Simulated assay, not measured.
Amino acid sequence: MMMLKKSILALFLLSILFSCKKKAIISTVETAYWFGGGIENMILLKGTIQSDGTQTVTKLYDGGLYDPLVALEIHPGTKEIYWAEMDIEPVTSSNFTCYVNKGDTSGGPKQRILSLPQLVISAMAVEPVSRKLYYVVYDEKAVGEYLYRCNLDGTGNTMLFSSFKFGDVVSINIDGANNKIYVVENDLESLPRKESSVYKANLDGTGTPVLLYNKASLPIRVAEIDRFTGIAIDGSNLYIASSQGSATGTSYLFKGDVNGNPATTVISSGGSANHPISTVLGLNIDSKHRYLYWISRSNSTSQDAGVVYKVPLAAAATSTPKLIFKDINLHGGLFGPIEIGN
Rank of each mutant, 00 (worst) to 15 (best):
A84E: 07
F254M: 01
E85P: 01
G77L: 13
S51F: 03
G207W: 06
V308Q: 05
S190I: 01
A10S: 07
N342I: 11
T318E: 02
G77W: 03
Y138E: 09
N179Y: 02
V136Q: 08
T265N: 11
Y148F: 12
L116D: 06
S19C: 12
K110R: 15
C150L: 09
M1R: 05
Y309N: 06
G107I: 09
G207T: 04
I338Y: 01
I328T: 05
N329D: 13
C20Q: 12
N202M: 12
K110W: 00
L218T: 00
G176T: 08
V308Y: 04
T78L: 03
S190L: 07
W294M: 04
P209W: 12
E224P: 00
T155E: 11
A84F: 05
G63R: 05
T208K: 13
K6Y: 09
L203I: 13
G37R: 06
D204Y: 10
D52V: 07
A201E: 10
R131E: 15
Y135A: 03
N157C: 03
T48Y: 02
G64H: 08
L69M: 15
M2A: 15
N274W: 00
P312Q: 08
E224C: 00
I174G: 11
I181F: 01
S272I: 04
T208N: 11
S122Y: 01
L13C: 13
L69N: 08
N214G: 11
Q111P: 04
S272G: 14
S278W: 02
I338K: 04
K132T: 06
F325P: 06
N259H: 10
G306T: 06
G103I: 01
S217M: 14
I181S: 03
L188P: 00
T48C: 08
F228K: 04
W294C: 04
V170I: 05
Q118P: 03
L65M: 14
G205W: 14
P109I: 08
M2N: 13
R193Y: 11
S300W: 07
N329Y: 04
T78A: 07
D175E: 07
L114N: 08
S243D: 07
T31R: 12
L119E: 14
T250D: 03
K79L: 14
I172W: 06
L152T: 09
K141D: 15
A123E: 03
V198R: 00
L323W: 10
S171D: 15
M2Y: 15
D226W: 00
T158Y: 10
S130G: 01
I231E: 01
D168Q: 03
G333R: 10
A317K: 11
A263R: 02
Q50F: 15
Y291K: 06
I231N: 00
I8H: 09
K132F: 04
G36T: 03
N151Q: 12
V120Q: 08
L14P: 10
G154S: 05
A247M: 10
L116H: 11
G306W: 00
V258Q: 02
K165M: 08
I295K: 05
K215N: 13
T248L: 10
V184K: 04
D104G: 14
L65A: 13
F35H: 05
V29R: 09
